[in-house]
Design a protein around this nucleic acid. Structure first.
Lengths: 187, 187
DNA sequence: CAGTTATTTCAGTAATTACTGAAATATAAG
DNA sequence: CTTATATTTCAGTAATTACTGAAATAACTG
């Protein structure tokens, strides 16, 4: 398992970016190798390709599986585990969105909801309470978006991605055609 | 600067979450205190509230300013810097989206574009090349979305957030009313 | 300008996180 | 059951990141 220069560059880059993405260098590199590979790889091959210890690869794969970013399978007549990433980048992106929601949003959302149950203590808490309410409301909307994205058909998801700056136009379009909606949401 | 129990909980939570969000504990805590405060605070007050060194607060504030998540100002008749967060959570969210795009997406997008200029070396590189192309295409669309979000008016942004699972309906709506668009994008 | 106060920088240290190699555990085959 | 092979666990160590206190720099005041 020697990597071509092109692949090598990509793998090293993923290693560097790892720290920004909340994973460590090795985990990033393992993912990169698997992502580029045209066939599933076993742990031994990853060890060779990256020059890190076998146990490190094992831990890295474990973490990537916790992220649901790699899946393992068996090849006929071979006892070893083989690992690969999904073919569809949209599927990968959806997994990322969901896992990051779970890790980065949900715990805070839980804390906020719990805290907001209680009534603010003194007068100074009043403002803090309102701030938490604002944050909670926003996070709930983002969380809902994340959930809704998961349910979108691949086709619709692709079209939504294409949309981009056409969104305001679409919102206007919606306004003109379904004025009923606005009455429902007005205060 | 003693924090109420409610505030204290929130601040400690932000400290813990920091590592998942790509900042360290102190930076998370500083942000939390400023976010909850009903008035701008100076570095000394943050030091008291958090029980960390003055220099640590200085570095934390520097990082939060690099993220454009806190702004500094001066109060009349006071030489010290006072720090605060924007009132509008949507504004905060937009800043976060933009900064994360810059840090987590742009560098990889640059690498991918550069790499994809070159033609694949051997046959095995062929597949890797296609994988990078797929990733690049997706990242460009996400990046475009991020940019477009920044340009949306606060009102439209709020409405887009409300939308959630109504999106597929909206896409259908669009289809029925603007069939021209589909002709343009068909292959 | 000198004196005072606020802020930043940075070398040293503490704390945390990542990695390795050896041992333990698991899995399959004969 | 025994042997061979694959994988995981984990204590110890290495590497990285965070934090402190002291010193340097900057910014205001009279």
């Amino acid at each position: 398992m020697k990597l071509s220069e092109t692949k090598q560059d990509f793998v090293l880059h993923f290693g560097e970016m790892g720290s920004r993405w909340g994973i460590n260098r090795t985990v990033g590199q393992i993912y990169a190798v698997l992502y580029l590979s045209d066939e599933p790889l076993n742990a031994e091959q990853l060890t060779e390709a990256l020059g890190v210890s076998r146990s490190n690869v094992s831990m890295g794969l474990k973490e990537l599986q916790a992220w649901r970013l790699v899946k393992s399978q068996h090849l006929p007549g071979d006892r070893r585990d083989y690992f690969s990433t999904p073919d569809d980048v949209l599927e990968i992106a959806l997994t990322l969105v969901e896992e990051r929601r779970k890790r980065e949003l949900d715990p805070t959302l839980t804390l906020l909801r719990d805290t907001l149950m209680k009534s603010p203590g003194d007068a100074s808490d009043e403002h803090a309470h309102q701030r938490m309410q604002d944050m909670c409301d926003l996070m709930e909307q983002v969380s809902r978006w994340s959930h809704d994205l998961q349910r979108l058909s691949p086709d619709n998801l692709r079209r939504l991605l294409q949309l981009g700056s056409a969104v305001p136009t679409l919102l206007d379009l919606k306004d003109k055609l379904t004025p009923v909606k606005r009455q429902q949401t007005k205060r």
